[in-house]
Amino acid sequence: MGRALMNLSTRITTMKQFAELTKRLKRQRTALLVGVILNAVAMPSWAQEADATAATVDIAGHSVPVKAGGLYQRFHSNPPLSVIAAEVPDIDLSWFRGLQKTKVDMGFESYSPNFYYRNTRVTAVFTADLDRLRELMPTEVLEQVQPLQIWPGRGLVAFTAYAYHYCDNDSYNEIALSIVTNKPGNANLGPISLVGQSLSKDFWGYVLKLPVNTELARVRGVVGYNLPKWLTPIDYRETDKRLVFEIADSETGKLDVTFEVEKLAEVSTEPEWVTNSFTNIGHDGELAYGYAVSRQMSHASNSNADSVSLKLGDGSLSTYIESLKLGKMMKYEYVPDFQSALYAPEPLAQMLSQE
C-alpha cells in the first residue's frame, strides 16, 4: 500500500513537471512569434526586399547584395544578347547588336557600355538661382563648364526620374538632379548654347544628386563613376493618366519628395537618339566625363506646368532642392520607353585633345 502511494505521488509530480514544461514551451513559442512579428513590422519594406536577395557579389572589396539568378550575378555587365532575347523576347535588340562592349578597369573590372534594355524616364527642367548653382560646382569643374544662364540671375536644373525595368544591373529606380551646363571646350552662350544642344540632341550637365534604390546601383555609381549616389527607397508606379515617383529620406525612411507627371497623349514612336553627358572630378582628382546614348522609342514633351507636380517634404533632398530656389518649369519630357548604353568615364583632357 505504501509503495503504491509513493508511485502515485511520483506520477503526479511528473505530470505537474510535464504540464509546467508544456506551459514554458508555449510561452517561448509565443515570445518567438511576437518577436518575429515585431521585427517584420519594424523593418521597412525596401529593407525586406533587399534581404530577400540571396546572392552577393564583390565590387572593389564591397560585398553587394544582388538578385539571385539575376543578370548581374550571372554575367557581371556582359550578358549575351541571346540570353536577353530568350528571357524577354518582345524587346527589340537590334540597336544593341551594333554596339561593342569592352572590358575596362573603372575601380573594378567591368564592361563598357552598360546596357539598359527597357526603361522609362521623365524630366522637368526648371529655372534656378544662378549664384547658388555656381556655388555647388567645384572650382576645377567651373574652369571648364558653367551653368547656362537662361536670363539674368537664373540658370537651369533638370530633375529626372528613371525606372530601369530591365538592364545589365537587373532593375532599379533612380533620381537625377543636374545643373545644365555648356559642353567642355565650347563657349557658354546661355540660351544660344541651350538651343544648340537641343538641336544636336547632345546635352551636358553637372550632377548634384543621384539617389538610387539598390545597393548594386549605388556601389557601381560611386566606385565606377564617382557620382553622388546614395541608397534610399524610391517607389515607382503608374496610373491611367500619371506616373508617380516617391523618394523617401534615407535617414528617417519617411516620404520626402513626390514627383508626379502626366502621361502625354500625343507620343511619337519615331526612334530618336539622345546623348546625355556629365563633367565631374574622377577618383584620381582629375577632371573626367561620362555619357549615355539613349534610343528613345516613344517620347513627347511640352512646356505646360500643369503636367508636372514636384512636392517637397522635410527631408534632406527637399531641403537641398529648396536651396536652389526653383522657378518656372521650362520643359517637360515624357519618355515611357527608351533604351540606353552608359559608357565608362574617361579623362576630360582626352576628349578635349581630340577636338
Rank of each mutant, 00 (worst) to 15 (best):
A4M: 14
A19R: 10
E20Y: 14
R24A: 14
R24F: 12
L25C: 07
G35K: 06
A40H: 07
V41R: 10
M43D: 12
D51E: 12
D51K: 05
A52M: 12
V64N: 00
K67G: 15
A68D: 10
S82H: 04
A86D: 12
P89E: 13
D92R: 00
S94R: 14
Q100V: 05
K101P: 04
D105M: 11
D105N: 13
S112I: 01
Y116H: 06
T123P: 10
A124G: 07
L130T: 07
M137S: 03
M137E: 12
P138C: 01
L142S: 04
E143I: 14
W151H: 10
V157L: 03
T160L: 11
A161P: 01
Y164D: 02
Y166A: 15
N169T: 12
D170S: 04
G185H: 15
G185M: 05
G196C: 12
K201S: 05
D202R: 06
P211M: 11
V212R: 14
R218M: 10
G221A: 00
V222L: 15
G224H: 00
Y225F: 02
P228E: 00
L231A: 06
I234S: 14
E246P: 03
A248P: 05
D249R: 09
E251P: 10
E251I: 08
V257S: 15
F259R: 10
E260K: 05
E262R: 11
E266R: 07
T275M: 05
N276R: 13
F278S: 07
T279H: 03
G285C: 06
G290M: 09
Y291W: 06
Y291C: 01
Y291D: 01
V293Q: 13
Q296I: 01
N302P: 04
S303A: 06
S303I: 02
N304K: 14
S307C: 12
K311L: 08
L324Q: 04
M330K: 13
E333H: 15
V335G: 04
F338K: 11
A344C: 04
E346S: 14
M351W: 03
L352H: 02
